[in-house]
């Protein structure tokens, strides 16, 4: 990963004595403070704070219209914030946009392609737009096409590609100048399941290459497996930020406990019904499913009480909480559309 040392020195005047590598590590890839954006009387962003360390894959989640795309547009130097600031690699996006553009690869939620271009020409065009000499591009482009599985389509006209392929081509375009930060706005929207899996595989590979990635989605499970951290935004405010497990805990998302008893199931059901944090019970041939409102401690207590009361348990397990449930819980169950 290349770092603009002079810029970082300017930003970190106090740490001038520290080793360059330490300073580079100290500067977060994204630093957003009090970022607000107003369109007339509509407040798209109401002062969000966000810090993302280098090499992190950050999932930006929220319903449509929550402010994800606005934040990403500001980071991509396409929009000026009304107040607050956003820095990429320590550089203010409004003060040195040219420097920021070198460091970012931006994929908007909706984008068009120049239909009359062939795939290779399309990448050559953007490569040249970043000032990459032709000889270098000749070597780079086959590698990029390989990465996004489009090598066999190199001479195809862009308008003949499927949506998933266009999406991957756009991702290759983001990578043409080897940026440190990828800003991907809904990269998997409108893709069929196979195309989504392909996209996910590519992102996983990019993560292993050490890129910092900020990726948005209004569908949380889509991100679950690959993100290190998530940030949940709604109505222009960050309502949660951290790793997925933390957020699940903090948001008091219901847990689903599967309990199987050896016998006395009727009694056990009555016993459970009276316990605190037990919101709902479902009984079927596999046992009893408990919608549990407590945290780890309360869950442990419930097990203790059951055994203490002499019930014979075959199994006591917590079902994997669906991230979609987390999302619905956080965003109060609505689709959030404004």
């Amino acid at each position: 990963m290349t770092t603009n040392k002079s810029t970082i020195e300017e930003m970190n005047g106090d740490n001038a004595a520290a080793a360059p590598s330490e300073r580079a590590a100290a500067v977060p890839m994204i630093e957003i403070k009090g970022l607000a954006k107003q369109f007339g009387s509509f407040h798209a962003l109401k002062g969000i704070d966000l810090t993302i360390a280098k090499g992190t894959v950050f999932g930006f989640v929220g319903p449509n219209g929550a402010g994800k795309s606005t934040t990403m547009s500001i980071l991509a130097t396409l929009m000026a914030p009304t107040s607050g600031y956003a820095k990429v690699d320590g550089i203010d996006v409004t003060k040195q946009p040219h420097e920021v553009r070198k460091r970012i690869g931006y994929m908007p939620d909706f984008f068009g392609v120049y239909d009359q271009f062939k795939t290779v020409e399309y990448l050559h065009f953007y490569g040249a737009s970043y000032g990459i000499p032709k000889a270098e591009r000749e070597q780079l482009i086959p590698q990029l096409l390989e990465l996004v599985n489009l090598s066999d389509k190199k001479d195809a006209y862009v308008d003949t590609l499927s949506r998933g392929m266009k999406q991957r081509l756009c991702l290759a375009r983001c990578l043409v100048h080897d940026p440190e930060l990828l800003i991907l706005d809904e990269p998997a929207s409108g893709l069929d399941p196979r195309a989504r899996i392909e996209m996910r595989e590519i992102l996983r590979e990019l993560k292993s290459m050490g890129k910092t990635i900020i990726i948005s989605s209004h569908i949380l499970p889509e991100l679950a497996e690959m993100v290190d951290e998530i940030g949940v935004i709604e109505h222009g405010q960050m309502i949660a930020q951290g790793n997925v497990a933390d957020i699940q805990n903090r948001m008091r998302v219901k847990r689903f406990l599967h309990i199987r008893f050896l016998d006395r199931e009727d009694e056990a059901e009555a016993f459970l019904r009276d316990r605190p944090y037990v919101n709902r019970l479902l009984r079927d041939e596999r046992g009893i499913q408990v919608h549990f409102g407590g945290q780890d401690e309360e869950q442990s207590e419930l097990l203790h009480d059951l055994i203490g009361a002499g019930f014979k348990l075959v199994s006591y397990s917590e079902a994997q909480t669906n991230l979609e449930d987390v999302f619905l819980e956080i965003t109060k169950g609505g689709d959030g559309a404004q």
């Binding site: 396409l78 040219h98 970043y130």
Partner: peptide
Amino acid sequence: EKQTLNLLLTTQQ
């Protein structure tokens, strides 16, 4: 309108 402008504007040109 073709949604290609933003891509162009984020390049070094």
